[in-house]
């Protein structure tokens, strides 16, 4: 019975939040990982971001529903931070629509995994490396510091800000039906397209950046490129067991000792 009424509620077009409330939630989303920890992960951040919307529940901040919702939403939750807006919006909509707590709990549990994996693949493993490589390519081509930084920050944050705003909007609009939005072709095919572009960009950017780092005269350029290719293959082959920065640290320590002590 309660489930049926909740489903009926979801068929009603969602009432938009006041602009001020939407903005408060959106700004708080930038700090969603503020208290990230190994026990509740993003949980407290979700409640923190959603709190302005929960003030609209019957009784306001002094009401029982407000406290129950805060308590429910401050528990364990995991998602990619840029996609946390989807969860915040959808869960806020569910709370405001009076969806039964048990259904909210089940939805909350089901939502975390997909929001984590979609975000990790699209942002951390595709968009961020692509933007880094674009900046490295610009550096290698001789761009000045301000231009390199502008290329990186502008490109990256167009995607970043769009995802945060889109996530909150789609979550608030769709509520418990937000899974439809996660099946969007951009989210499904995006990592593949961005990854392909990044692979091509990497091939261009790495030699350009290395060339500029070597400096004028390109001393030992051929040897460096060969060493980099050989090292890259080795690292890719055995990289699962060895992190590149740790390997670099070990090599640098030995090199510095050799150069200082001899």
């Amino acid at each position: 019975m309660t489930t049926g009424s909740a489903l009926d509620t979801r068929k009603v077009p969602a009432a938009p939040l006041p602009v001020g409330t939407w903005m408060r939630i959106f700004i708080r989303l930038f700090a969603v990982q503020g208290s990230w920890n190994y026990e509740t992960l993003l949980g407290n951040g979700i409640a923190f971001c959603m709190e302005p919307a929960l003030r609209l529940l019957p009784g306001g901040r002094a009401g029982g529903k407000y406290c129950e919702a805060i308590g429910r939403q401050a528990r364990y939750f995991n998602a990619h931070p840029y996609f946390a807006g989807v969860a915040v919006g959808a869960l806020a909509r569910a709370e405001l629509d009076g969806v039964p707590p048990a259904m909210i709990e089940r939805f909350r549990t089901a939502l975390g995994g997909p929001l984590g994996s979609v975000g990790d693949r699209l942002v951390w493993a595709s968009w961020l490396p692509l933007c880094s490589l674009l900046a490295l390519g610009a550096f290698g081509y001789g761009a000045r510091p301000l231009l390199v930084i502008a290329i990186f920050l502008t490109t990256y944050n167009v995607g970043h800000l769009f995802l945060r705003a889109w996530g909150l909007r789609v979550g608030l609009n769709k509520g418990l039906r937000v899974a439809d939005a996660l099946a969007h072709p951009v989210l499904r095919r995006g990592p593949q397209v961005v990854g392909s572009t990044a692979a091509l960009t990497a091939g261009i950017a790495i030699p350009l950046a290395a060339s500029r780092l070597i400096g004028g005269g390109r001393f030992l350029a051929a040897e460096i490129i060969l060493a980099a290719m050989f090292g890259g293959v080795l690292f890719a082959r055995f990289g699962g067991r060895l992190e590149g920065w740790r390997m670099s640290l070990a090599i640098l320590v030995l090199f510095v000792l050799f150069s200082v002590i001899r």
């Binding site: 290395a210 890259g232 080795l234 690292f235």
Partner: peptide, 8 residues
């Protein structure tokens, strides 16, 4: 450069 190539 080796680390970056392997990472990509």
């Amino acid at each position: 450069a080796a680390v970056a190539s392997g990472a990509v």
